[in-house]
């Protein structure tokens, strides 16, 4: 594995939910990318992709997030985040929000920065061109492809490519994997009954795999599914894809 080669300089887009709730995920991205020879930086000005506001209909509240994002990341060639959803929002919604703000400079800049923003799975497979990242995770896991990672960020089968190369890992197919888990951002509290009905089906499918770990590329969806599994005392642990990829045989717990 490349370890000290002068790899690209990468800006980490941690995302707000990971920053506050799930710091182990961005830490894993740092570990992983540094192991692969990248120089990782964390621009402190970053906050959030603004999706929470945009998808609830509050465009004006989301515009400062677009400005922040551009300011924090415009000097980087590679911006990498551990979230298909937030990366998808940057690429798909930021230009629209910038247009809404009427700021032509922001409209242009947000489009340029969006093009340089990658989900971790895309950055590994497309930019670093690795699928075997030297990871070791001797557990039975099942993977839920989150909707925004598949349909907005369009990460395709990259997460599967990466997981298939993890030593010791036993990947069990998740029935009805392409079905939404029901999280949907504010949908989870604006339509809690439907959200839970969808999540219950997802949780049932996860349980049916007999996996020890449920892995996704989006901690928000994972939090929703795990919230249901935990209530049922199902004993299935949540983990982000990056955290699996960051573990090595040497560092195995």
């Amino acid at each position: 594995m490349p370890s000290d080669a002068a790899g690209p300089r990468v800006a980490l887009f941690a995302t707000c939910i990971n920053d506050v709730m799930f710091p182990d995920t961005p830490k894993a991205v740092v570990t992983l990318l540094e192991r692969l020879g990248c120089t990782v930086e964390f621009p402190l000005e970053q906050t959030c992709c603004g999706q929470l506001f945009t998808n609830t209909g509050y465009y004006d509240a989301a515009v400062p997030n677009v400005r922040n994002y551009v300011k924090a990341f415009e000097s980087y060639d590679y911006i990498v985040g551990p979230s298909g959803s937030c990366v998808g929002a940057v690429r798909h919604q930021h230009p629209m929000l910038a247009d809404h703000s009427g700021d032509a400079g922001l409209a242009k800049a947000s489009r340029e920065v969006a093009l340089r923003t990658y989900d971790i799975s895309e950055f590994l497979v497309d930019v670093l061109q690795v699928t075997d990242v030297g990871a070791y995770f001797p557990h039975r896991v099942t993977y839920h492809p989150t909707c925004h990672s598949v349909r907005v960020a369009k990460v395709g089968d990259r997460p599967y490519q990466l997981l298939s190369k993890v030593k010791g890992l036993d990947l069990v197919a998740l029935p009805d994997a392409d079905q939404c888990c029901g999280f949907g951002g504010t949908f989870s509290v604006k339509n809690p009954d439907v959200s839970v009905a969808m999540g219950a089906d997802k949780a049932r499918n996860v349980r049916s795999t007999g996996a020890e770990y449920l892995v996704t590329g989006d901690n928000a969806c994972l939090m929703h599914i795990t919230g249901l599994l935990h209530r049922e005392r199902a004993g299935i642990k949540p983990i982000h894809l990056a955290q699996i990829l960051a573990q090595t045989e040497a560092g195995a717990r």
């Binding site: 998808n55 209909g57 909707c147 349909r151 939404c180 949907g184 951002g185 949908f187 339509n191 969808m198």
Partner: peptide, 9 residues
């Protein structure tokens, strides 16, 4: 308009 998880399917 809120009757959707925006899953995109």
């Amino acid at each position: 308009p809120y009757a959707s998880s925006l899953c995109g399917a």
